[in-house]
Design a protein around this nucleic acid. Structure first.
Lengths: 252, 252
DNA sequence: CGCGCGTCGATCGAAATTGTTCGCTGTGCC
DNA sequence: GGCACAGCGAACAATTTCGATCGACGCGCG
């Protein structure tokens, strides 16, 4: 039996019955439980079903997006950056979050703390947070970009212009003293600008590998930024260049 | 038995009877009272029921279950309804989808077909579809409702008013000839209205258990609806009442 | 033939779940 | 108030399941 056939059968079985357990599937398909587990893992990663202990349930409402970049080795650093950034958020604040792995991590940290309002254009953050009634969540609409899980475009910017954010956290792909903050996509950059315009305080989240890089689309000059939260991989020269633009640097 | 199944059964039992005691649940499910207690604790933490000494009672009058507990035996019917509804969507159409399990199923069907633009206010649908670059996805922003995974409020309605939809699919909680379409939440109903206003064609998706029910908030009279897609569980009298309002009935 | 590649089954330690037992607390009854 | 008792939470042990790793097998290719 081909692997593709098997996974298709598993999926059919799960969606039909609403759930299935590992042993029954193994027997049904004539393979070992280890194989079933691997298949379920794979289907779960693709968001096609939801894995539970002992089996799986229908994935019709699976909110866990596989963030492809999430399992990178910088994960621990991003978490530390998020924990440092969280200290910039006062109780009851309205917080803006753009898309990105680091901002997603910050969203999780804030969700555990609770007591804030989060405004975001990132679908994965929205999916993460919507199950938490203890935080207020506002999602900025727009056209979906599958590459970054973000909602962008004029609608998003119009909607953002109607809100006031106490602090906006921006994830960037590149950051230099000369070119300022840059990202890979122009629409994204434009929507990020709308976040900055609506916010009293602008904070950039970027691990140290981004510093010194210039990517395609410009978001803003460094002088528009109040704080940069990063890890401790910055060289002295890099830090000096950034602080020279009036940006406060926070090391996680 | 999977844990997810067990908690779903507990919830079903409690909401059906209004209350339940630990021993009865333990016997019914074939597990120990300790396990039932732990499950009840968990459900209570999620605010899905109210724990009492000796058992549990329904948390609120108008209980609306989170979607993750609704994957039930009606799953197959929802899928059939979705497949029937898909035939109403011409190639290249702009399709509006509100929240709900049936509309989510339709979203999956449309995603596999591709070639359409989907406008939705449901976060779970957005999360499902954003990984599919072959369809255009527009998410309507707004305030997040964790009970239904929908984005609602004035921002959502303003944004919808700027779009034109070829066909809008609405998921409802109740449908009668007298009261029209109804749902559990007023904000949701209001946002649903915005979908209807923007659409050339209005289609309601509802399995037959919804027909004849009236819930809290009115969406629209039946005369505003062009089609109803449902399963084959409708009585003749029910169908006649619906068609009498000028609604075409499609059975999956 | 040898080799790399992907897949499968088996094994083992780690983690989660469950049932049991134990005090402790709340409730009803005298 | 005191008592009996059911229900509760916590701790513990037994079982199940998971994840990672290893070796085996089939297959294509040079």
């Amino acid at each position: 039996m081909l692997k593709a056939d098997r996974t298709a059968k598993i999926l059919a079985h799960v969606t039909e019955a609403g759930s299935a357990d590992v042993h029954a599937l193994a027997e049904l398909l004539g393979v070992s439980t280890a194989t079933v587990r691997r298949d379920l893992q794979e289907l779960h990663d693709q968001g096609l079903l939801h894995r539970t202990r002992g089996g799986a349930v229908t994935g019709t409402v699976n909110l866990e997006l596989p963030l492809r970049h999430r399992h990178g080795k910088r994960q621990a650093e991003k978490r530390r950056i998020a924990l440092a950034a969280e200290r910039l958020v006062p109780e009851g604040a309205v917080v803006g979050l753009t898309g990105g792995t680091t901002t997603s991590e910050l969203a999780r940290v804030l969700a555990e703390r609770g007591g804030v309002t989060i405004v975001t254009n990132a679908v994965n953050i929205a999916a993460d947070l919507i199950v938490r009634p203890e935080i207020r969540l506002v999602v900025v609409g727009g056209i979906a970009r599958s590459a970054s899980y973000e909602l962008v475009g004029p609608a998003a910017e119009r909607m953002l212009s109607q809100y006031h954010l106490d602090v906006a956290f921006i994830g960037v792909d590149g950051l230099t003293a000369g070119e300022g903050c840059t990202t890979h996509d122009e629409m994204e950059a434009h929507t990020d600008q709308a976040f900055l315009r609506s916010a009293s305080r602008c904070v950039v989240l970027a691990d140290s590998s981004k510093v010194g890089l210039v990517t395609f689309a410009a978001i803003c000059p460094l002088t528009d930024i109040h704080d940069l939260v990063t890890d401790d991989g910055l060289t002295g020269a890099q830090e000096k260049a950034v602080t020279g633009c009036g940006v406060r640097v926070l090391r996680a």
